[in-house]
């Protein structure tokens, strides 16, 4: 059974159709990279998967649970679907430890003593164990993003969504975050990443999705499709990004 199953979804903002009959099925352990020009609907697709945006047609299933079923408890769903944003969105009033353990403590009802160990564990995964008691404003952009990834990992999600998580970073900080993503992928996490890092998509992606005008314009095995795009639009996009 696929972890994420998107069937013919339609998403509109008013009269603007942003996702038009999009389908995508993601198996356990797959790393899907989503490419496409700004405004093509990449972020919106991710936000539909964890129910941050309601859809107007089609269906989305995560681990067999229908997201847009009124009976679906979004709070339960979101424990299974982690999302990391371009702008980190850490809680500035909480320490790194509390950022990470807030949801485990109040949503998953973990004891405080246990949750500190949990925070230490996920911070080790992103290489920031020494920042347990730091506050977000004392971290660099790359460190903030790694904490955001750790915060998401702490929920033990079944799938993780990444929305241009390196786009707000200086080039020299991009590498450290990509390295963390690589580690998360190597640990077997199911991932859907919106990114402009073609190199990462080629090396670590299982499949690549090219979105264009709210549709999945092209989809295929990562390395092959990137080397040999089948549509003129994807070819044009790639040559613009690579040159």
């Amino acid at each position: 059974m696929p972890v994420v199953e998107i069937n013919n979804i339609v998403k509109r903002f008013g009269s603007n159709t942003v996702l038009d009959d999009v389908s995508l099925s993601v198996d356990r352990g797959e790393v899907i990279t989503v490419l496409g020009r700004s405004g093509s609907g990449k972020s919106t697709m991710l936000r539909c998967i964890n129910g941050l945006e309601p859809i107007q047609g089609g269906s989305i299933r995560v681990d067999g649970v229908e997201v847009n079923d009124p009976a679906c408890d979004l709070r339960v769903l979101r424990q299974n679907v982690g999302i990391v944003f371009q702008s980190f969105n850490l809680f500035p009033h909480l320490s790194v430890c509390d950022n990470i353990t807030l949801a485990p403590r109040i949503v998953q009802r973990q004891a405080r003593e246990h949750s500190r160990d949990l925070a230490r564990g996920v911070l080790r995964q992103v290489g920031l164990e020494d920042k347990l008691d730091a506050f977000p404003n004392s971290l660099s952009g790359g460190q903030k993003q790694r904490v955001a990834i750790a915060r998401s990992l702490a929920m033990h999600p079944k799938v993780m969504l990444f929305d241009e998580v390196t786009s707000a970073l200086d080039p020299e900080l991009t590498g450290e975050v990509l390295k963390v993503l690589e580690g998360v992928a190597a640990a077997g996490m199911t991932m859907i990443l919106v990114t402009h890092e073609i190199g990462f998509a080629r090396r670590f992606g299982s499949r690549v999705v090219f979105m264009h005008h709210g549709k999945v314009h092209e989809i295929g095995p990562a390395a092959e499709t990137l080397a040999n795009p089948q549509t003129a639009e994807f070819a044009a996009f790639l040559s613009a990004v690579l040159h």
Binding site: L52, L74, R75, F85, N89, A103, I106, S152
Partner: peptide, 11 residues
């Protein structure tokens, strides 16, 4: 985005 970050964590 702060509301959203909370919502995305299941709050």
């Amino acid at each position: 985005t702060q509301w959203e970050a909370g919502a995305a964590l299941g709050l």
